[in-house]
């Protein structure tokens, strides 16, 4: 082969690699923008396993509950960690209301929150919960592998966690993720 042509082809190599790299990067940014990819999302160790053991006191007037209460209740069900001090929790309240209206059982756990603050939150933004328990020191949350509020766990008919949704639910994520999964779990 002609030496000059070969040299030109050699130059194309690095250029091609750079082009492929930018393509991948562009796709990544696009998916982040569309909310399909979150580089900070962690995989949950709880998926495929039963809920961790816990017994939590209730947020009056609600009674407290334990993991066995969840497993004996109506399934599939959601377990939702929230706090009055958490903005995405405010934002997801309407999505949770919608789920409750559709007859989904949601067990609420108030995470590192004061009794009065939780009560105020439930009055102001509505109470979609079947029951509300208090995890005042956040120790139960650590056994869930929780890394922020809100987080929502989907428990199937056999008491196995099938999904951990980190961050606030929206009408979109309820329609595209939560409801289809609940339907599949029957």
């Amino acid at each position: 082969m002609d030496a000059i042509i070969r040299r030109r082809l050699l130059m194309l190599g690095p250029l091609g690699i750079a082009a492929a790299g930018s393509g991948v990067f562009w796709a990544l940014m696009l998916r982040m923008q569309q909310g399909k990819y979150d580089p900070h999302a962690l995989q949950s160790m709880l998926v495929g396993k039963p809920l961790p053991d816990f017994t939590l006191p209730g947020q009056t007037p609600s009674a407290g509950f334990s993991n066995t209460d969840v497993n004996r209740g109506k399934l599939p069900a959601l377990v939702n960690f929230f706090a009055s001090w958490c903005i995405p929790c405010v934002e997801e309240s309407s999505a949770l209301d919608e789920l409750a209206r559709q007859g989904v059982t949601i067990w609420g756990i108030a995470y590192k929150d004061k009794v009065a603050a939780t009560a105020g939150f439930l009055t102001r933004y509505g109470d979609p919960y079947h029951q509300v328990a208090r995890d005042a020191d956040g120790r139960t949350a650590i056994n869930f592998g929780l890394y922020g509020v809100p987080e929502t766990y989907v428990v199937d008919r056999t008491g196995i966690v099938r999904l951990r949704y980190a961050g606030g639910l929206s009408s979109d994520s309820v329609r595209d993720t939560i409801l289809p999964l609940l339907r599949k779990l029957g």
Partner: peptide, 8 residues
């Protein structure tokens, strides 16, 4: 810790 939060 790994049991709760994974190898990450």
């Amino acid at each position: 810790m790994v049991q709760r939060y994974g190898t990450f």
